[in-house]
Every structure is written in structure tokens, then in C-alpha cells.
Amino acid sequence: MNVVMTGFFHNIRTWLSNRWYWIPLFVLLVWTILPLVWAVSASFKEATEVYQTPVSLLPESFNFDNYLRVFEYPNFWRYLFNSVFLAITTTVLSVFISILAGYAFARYAFKFRHILLVIILVPRIIPRASIIVPLFTGIAALGMLDSYFALILTYAATAIPLATWILAGFFKVIPKALEEAAAIDGAKPWQIIWHVVIPISLPAIITVSIFSLRESWNEFPFVLAFTSSQEMRTLPYQLFMLKDSMGMQDWPMVLAFTIVTILPLLILYIIFEKRVVNNILSGAVK
């Protein structure tokens, strides 16, 4: 018996010393997916089913009623349109501007280069929630409250620093030979950027775009502070309002709404996952 026990502990010890990393990985798995799985499961349940004990992970029957109710929610499509529109316009704008700036920082030596780089990079560490007050009064003074303009302007401005930084780092390591060949053939700088640099750096541009899409898709403090009319709300804003108006009683519907806001980015991420993860690992966090 004693021998068996010591053997057992010995086995555990050798397993621990060789395979210890499975423990944090298991924690990672449970920790990451528990809130999600629990929310997804409840989003398929009937309103009264979430109150039942004993609790079951699987709903009694998968019904999509909650999702249908989300789609039929007043103004839902308007909120979805706002979210998609803002995400796409700000991403296109900020990525375009960042490609130009990143290219300049990567390839040109010019006066004030360092100062300008610092000016662009330091705000990267300024968190967005903290600056809503002065931005609100500024936008109010321009008479631009409650407009797409205010949101696009502020979303793009917060996305540019990080995007410029990542792209500049990427442009630096691509070989110059192609650009030089194009320059000898008489290509103008913007032609070089368009025909040579952008095609080569597509992976980095995709990564940066996903960062920017994520930022504006999930943005909350700005849209909360700068808009007032219902028509301007985005999906996260409406999700926040939903929580208040429903008093959290209708959990399945609120959670279905939550899942609907999560899903588009998740799908995009699954498509580009390898690229995004590896790009972050290799350069984005410098």
C-alpha cells in the first residue's frame, strides 16, 4: 500500500515537473471560455429557464427566439449600420494616414523626424476614457456634437499612433531593392507606396486594420459622451442602454445581443488569426 502510494506521488511529481504547463493552460482555457460559453448557452434558453435549478449548460431546446428578438429590436439595424459604418470609415481613414506617416518614418531622414515621431507616439499611451471631458467641450464649441464627424475624427485620431508605429516597424524591415528599382524607373513616391510597398506589407496592413476595427467596433466612452440622439447609437452603446432598460430581467435576450456584438469581430479574427497573432508577437509590441 505504502509502495503504491509513494509510486503514485512519484508519478504525480514527475508529471508535474515535465508537464506542469498543462495546469496554467487548463486555467487559461476555463478562464477564457467560461464567461463566453455560459453567455452563449443562456442566449439560447427561454427567459424562465435561466432561473431553473439545477442548472444545465445545454439549453432544453436550442431556440433562436432571443436572436430573432434582437434583430426585431427597434432601431437594431440602425445601430448595426452605425457600428459598421464607423468601423469601416475610421479604419480606412486611419490606416491610409498611418501608411503614409509610417513610410515617411521608416524611409526618410528629415529634420524634426524625432520630434514628430514622439508627437505621434506619446499619445498612444493616453487612454481614451480620460480625455472625454475636454474633447466634449471642444466638439460642442464646433457645434459637432451628435454627429458622425465627431466620432470619425476622434476614433481615427486614437487609432493612428499605434498603427503608424506598427507599420513603420514593418516598413523598416522590408528590403529596399524593389523601391529603389521603381525609383530608378522614375516612379513617384506615391506610386511606389501604392504599387510596391502596400502589396508587400499586406499582412501588416491587415493586422493594423483589425486593431483599428476592434477599437472602433468596441468603442464606448466617446460615443456615450459625444452623442445624444438614439439614431447615433452604436451596438455597444445600445447594449449598455439595454442593460438599464431591461433591468437585467430578460437575461437571454440581453446575452443574445451581447453575442451578436461579439460575433463579427470573432469571425474576422478566426479568418486572420494566424497572421494577427504572429504579427503581434513579432513586431506590434515593440
Binding site: 506617416a101 515617411a104 475636454p134 467641450t137 485620431a157 493612428i160
Partner: peptide, 27 residues
Amino acid sequence: IPYILVFPAVLFVIGVLGYAIIAGLLM
């Protein structure tokens, strides 16, 4: 060329984020 390339980014960052900090400090 490099100044032209950098200009829009600097404009956005100073115009929005720089403004916010300075205006906030003054306010």
C-alpha cells in the same frame, strides 16, 4: 515629401489628442 507624408497623421494627433490634453490642462 516626408513632411507631406507625415502631415495628416500629425494633424490628427495634435488636433485631437494634443488639443484634449492642453485644453484639459487649461480648463
